[in-house]
Design a binder for these strands. Structure first.
Length: 286
DNA sequence: CTCCAGGGATGAT
DNA sequence: ATCATCCATGGA
C-alpha cells in the first residue's frame, strides 16, 4: 500500500485510539485501519512520524489534531499528584476531531456499556447500515448517516445489541434528518447554548453532551463526568469528604481544570481506566 | 453466580 | 430540587 509520511511529534497513535474517545479503529498489520469521514484510512506510527495511506494526509492531520499545541496544553494542567501521574502516563494522547453525527450517535449508545461493547455496537451499526469500502486488503465501513438510521426500525437497531438505547438513537436520528436538530449550524453557539441544544435530544444528558462537545465540536473545556471520573474525583480530590453532591463536582471541574479541562479529563480517565485494568489482571481476587 | 459498565428518563418524596 | 428505579446486554 502506498503511504504518505506526516511529521507527528508529541503523538501516540495507539494510545489515542485506545483512550475511549473513538471506537471503530482496529489493529491491522503494524498499524490501524479506520474511517475518517467517508474515507478509509490505514495509519502506522514509527517514532515521530505517522504514515497514512495515500490521499489521507490532510484529513489525518486534522482528525488526529496534530496542530494542537500538546506540550503547552499539558503544561497548563493543574499541578497536583493525580494530574501529574496522568500527564506522564498519557504522553502523546490527543483529542481527535470526530465527525459530529458519528460522535453523537456513538455516545448515545455508550450509556451503561463498557468500551469493548461500545466497539461492538459501533461495528454492528457500520456493517449493517454503513457504506462498504475497500482499502488494499482491508474492508471498512463508514458510520451510517442520520438519514440512513432514520429509516431503519427500532428492532433492527436492537439487533445491534443496543437494548433500550435503540429508541433514543432512532429518535435522535430522525430529528437530525428532519433538520429539527441542525448539528452543523450549532457549531457557532457558545458552550452553554450548545450543551442545552444537545441535552434536548433523546438519550443525551450532561455526560453525553459534554463528550460530543469535546470530541465533536472541539470544545476543549467540556468536562464529561462518568463513573470513572467521579471515582477519581472522590478518591483524589475530595478525599474523605461527605456530602459531595453532583453540583459540587461539576463546579469543581469547571473551574479547577481550566481552559483545557477536557484534555485533563481525558488524561485522568485513560490513566484511571488502564491502571485499574492492570491491577485487576495482576490480582484477580479481592 | 454476582457485580458493573464513558447514563438518561421518569416518577416519587 | 434531590432521590430511586428501570432500562438491555455482555464483560470480568
Amino acid at each position: 500500500m502506498k503511504m504518505t509520511r506526516i511529521e507527528a511529534p508529541d503523538f501516540d497513535l495507539a494510545k489515542t485510539l485506545d483512550s475511549g474517545q473513538v471506537f471503530h479503529w482496529e489493529p491491522r498489520g503494524s498499524g490501524f485501519a479506520g474511517m475518517i469521514e467517508s474515507q478509509p484510512v490505514y495509519a502506522e506510527q514509527r517514532g515521530d512520524r505517522l504514515f497514512v495511506s495515500n490521499g489521507a494526509a490532510s484529513r489525518a492531520r486534522r482528525y488526529f489534531a496534530l496542530d494542537h499545541p500538546l506540550r503547552e496544553i499539558c503544561a497548563m494542567f493543574p499541578h497536583d499528584p493525580a494530574m501529574s501521574a496522568a500527564r506522564e502516563y498519557c504522553s502523546g494522547l490527543r483529542l481527535i476531531r470526530q465527525p459530529v453525527w458519528e460522535c453523537l450517535a456513538t455516545f448515545i449508545t455508550s450509556s451503561m456499556k463498557q468500551v469493548a461493547q461500545i466497539r461492538q455496537m459501533s461495528r454492528a451499526l457500520r456493517e449493517r447500515f454503513g457504506t462498504r469500502h475497500i482499502l488494499g486488503d482491508f474492508e471498512l465501513f463508514s458510520f451510517p448517516s442520520a438519514s440512513r438510521l432514520a429509516e431503519v426500525s427500532e428492532k433492527q437497531l436492537r439487533a445491534c445489541a443496543l437494548g433500550y438505547r435503540a429508541k433514543n438513537l432512532l429518535a435522535t436520528a430522525r430529528r437530525v434528518n428532519s433538520g429539527e436538530a441542525d448539528l452543523d449550524s450549532w457549531c457557532t453557539l457558545p458552550d452553554a447554548q450548545l450543551r442545552a441544544r444537545l441535552c434536548g435530544l433523546p438519550g443525551v444528558g450532561a455526560k453525553v453532551a459534554n463528550c460530543v462537545m469535546l470530541f465533536g465540536y472541539e470544545r476543549l473545556r467540556a468536562f464529561p463526568i462518568d463513573v470513572w471520573i467521579e471515582r477519581v474525583l472522590r478518591e483524589r480530590y475530595f478525599t474523605r469528604k461527605r456530602k459531595v453532591t453532583p453540583e459540587k463536582l461539576r463546579a469543581f471541574c469547571d473551574t479547577y481544570f481550566g481552559e483545557h479541562g477536557g484534555y485533563a479529563q481525558q488524561y485522568l480517565f485513560h490513566h484511571a481506566r488502564k491502571t485499574a485494568m492492570r491491577t485487576r489482571k495482576v490480582r484477580p481476587q479481592l
